[in-house]
Design a protein around this nucleic acid. Structure first.
Lengths: 179, 179
DNA sequence: TCGTGCATGTAATGAGTTACATGATTAT
DNA sequence: ATAATCATGTAACTCATTACATGCACGA
């Protein structure tokens, strides 16, 4: 199975929220708003938009054609919307966990069950990861001599543990705050 | 300019610490130790080792050939060691900051000036990033209504800020602890 | 002897980046 | 005028992943 493509889903998410975006608009989103955790260049975006057109996930927003002849504006179709929801509902695993932030970005409603589900799954995954990291630390650095021999490794493992602690803590606080 | 290749540097770092590794050994490192933040498959590793051989950065550890005919063991050359140090000393910028953890992994000495320098640069970069994120939060979510309209976006921005706060805090504590 | 793991390798594919390219508009 | 920006597009190249492939060793 080939790796699942993410770009079309991101574009769908953007068009779902802001109809009548041009390729250029989408490119700009990638550089500002969403650029914090996802990027794409225009040489990816334009061919992707054409593929999505033929797939019927988006269509050209004709009511805006007059305005500026050279600008092509798109809007999401019902098929595209279904596809976006399917993607958002896809189960999150350790492998695709990096997509969680991206998916959250496209959920606007505070009381969305999907949003809560993503956060709960993240708690689960990162709690596991945290305990795995702590176990590694025990195995590798139970003695001071081991720390001195691999100080850099010790540092980044320590950092990873604290990062996950902070992450799990935040997730739980946020989940509690949803209700 | 083509994107700088990282894999050869990682292999050099591994061979610098453990001489006489085979391709398989390197692959295993990528799945266990270092696998937490970097990965590579054997179909990348074997061609890369050959390239590095012809480049003179590594050589075949001949004293181990008898032991097991099919296993090819490598060791780092003086040229390779120079190259590794050059890479470790390369200035860290916002663009290549993701490599910092990887570089730290290969620094074993607690009192290495390079280690301290990487941490100091990270403090600088992440302090900047943190203030940028806080500014974004001000711009986008100064009113409660804005939060309700883009709740997912609000969450991940909040998460990013807390992550960076924790990161900067850890970096400063670690730097203080070095002395 | 049959599956699994070790150890090495190549080939096909796909995704992303950089570079190349054009025409229109807008600012200096 | 001319440089920069908007807006779109294609081509070349690199990188990584998946799949394909071989031979040996070892245990059930």
């Amino acid at each position: 199975m080939p790796k699942p493509r993410i770009l079309p889903n991101v574009i769908l998410g953007l068009l779902d929220n802001h109809p009548n975006m041009s390729g250029r608009d989408i490119e700009n989103e990638f550089q500002t708003e969403i650029g914090e955790f996802w990027q794409a260049s225009h040489s990816q975006i334009y061919p992707e938009l054409k593929r999505m057109l033929t797939d019927g996930w988006i269509k050209i927003a004709t009511e805006y054609v007059d305005e500026d002849a050279k600008v092509i504006r798109y809007e999401i179709t019902a098929d595209g919307h279904d596809h976006l929801l399917d993607w958002l509902h896809e189960p999150i695993t350790a492998e695709n966990d990096a997509l969680s932030s991206l998916k959250l970005y496209f959920i606007h409603d505070r009381h969305s069950p999907t949003l809560a589900k993503i956060l709960r799954t993240q708690v689960e995954l990162h709690t596991k990861k945290l305990s795995h990291l702590r176990q590694r630390q025990q195995q590798l650095f139970s003695k001071d001599a081991q720390i001195d021999q691999q100080y850099g490794h010790f540092l980044i493992l320590t950092r990873a543990i604290e990062r996950e602690e902070n992450n799990v803590d935040w997730l739980q606080r946020t989940l509690a705050g949803l209700k």
